[in-house]
């Protein structure tokens, strides 16, 4: 049953050094506030999992708290490179980063297999690409037709962290708009933390709303604006100017460190 906790307590209780942590959110509902709290608490040696590492993972990688990254696309959408992600891979700064790289279809199916508690997922993909030689992927014959298909191993993060618009007082969560892979991430993970824009007395049905029952969630923490500079549809707007500004902030190691000190380590989290 989800416990309603202040964010610092929830992060301290659920995320430990060395954990495999998936902070999910596909361009929408990215859990920045939780990620920043994780930085303030000084978590180390994390295996970071995420389909689309963007600014939040650029920050986590640049601060040196990740030893490994599992992902399928690392870019600043519409703007360009993630400079901290690139610096870690190209120059090992501030530390070397081990990679496990997939396609989006592969990662999505890996989460779905984890949610279903199956050992792997079956799909068509990866065939003919150089990714096959650099990642964990196999082939399996269809028992009915003999067709050769691709198998990808289930993802089972230690912790999934997501952001949603609302929770009720029993910790039932509702998110709407682009749902990404968050429900799968929560169900695939051993523990889960959901930050929300607001806690309400009763969830009202929303078109396309995804409801995750509180009894599969460990902790819910109220974090208004907790997905900024990403957004929570209907509550906050995507700060496209900040995504553009990040390019200059993150390009230089010292400018990055100074920005993180001022806005994340000493601040409240929201840039």
């Amino acid at each position: 049953m989800a416990e309603l906790l202040p964010l610092p307590e929830a992060v301290a209780a659920l995320i430990h050094d060395g954990d495999a942590v998936a902070l999910e959110g596909f361009t929408h509902l990215i859990p920045f506030a939780a990620g920043h709290e994780l930085l303030r608490q000084g978590r180390r040696e994390l295996e970071l999992i995420r389909m689309t590492p963007d600014l939040l993972y650029d920050q986590l990688i640049g601060m040196g708290c990740a030893r490994r990254l599992v992902f399928s696309y690392g870019g600043n959408p519409g703007v360009g490179s993630l400079h901290r992600f690139r610096d870690a891979i190209e120059h090992g700064w501030p530390r070397a980063l081990e990679l496990e790289e997939h396609s989006h279809a592969g990662m999505a199916n890996r989460y779905a297999a984890g949610a279903a508690d199956l050992p792997f997922a079956v799909m068509r993909g990866y065939a003919g690409t150089d990714l096959v030689a650099h990642t964990t992927v196999g082939t399996i014959a269809c028992p009915f037709t003999g067709e050769q298909l691709t198998a990808v191993p289930a993802l089972r993060p230690d912790v999934a962290v997501i952001h949603a618009q609302e929770a009720d007082r029993d910790g039932n969560v509702q998110l709407w708009g682009i749902p990404g892979v968050q429900k799968e991430a929560v169900l695939a993970a051993r523990r889960s933390l959901v930050t929300v824009e607001r806690v309400v007395d009763a969830l009202a049905p929303r078109p396309g709303g995804v409801v995750i029952p509180g009894w599969v969630i460990d902790a819910v923490a109220e974090a208004p604006g907790g997905s900024r500079p990403s957004y929570s549809l209907g509550v906050t707007a995507r700060d496209n100017d900040f995504y553009r500004a990040w390019d200059a902030i993150s390009r230089d190691r010292d400018a990055f460190a100074a920005w993180m000190d001022e806005h994340v380590l000493a601040g409240t989290g929201a840039p």
């Binding site: 361009t27 389909m51 519409g78 779905a112 429900k183 995804v210 549809l233 995507r238 995504y243």
Partner: peptide, 25 residues
């Protein structure tokens, strides 16, 4: 013209909005 593939305007004007596993599968 959206900056990201996930801009709010895309979700608000879409006929249907689906999860990533559904999109690919």
């Amino acid at each position: 013209v959206p900056l990201s593939i996930g801009d709010g305007e895309l979700a608000e004007t879409a006929d249907s909005v689906v999860s990533v596993p559904e999109m690919f599968n």
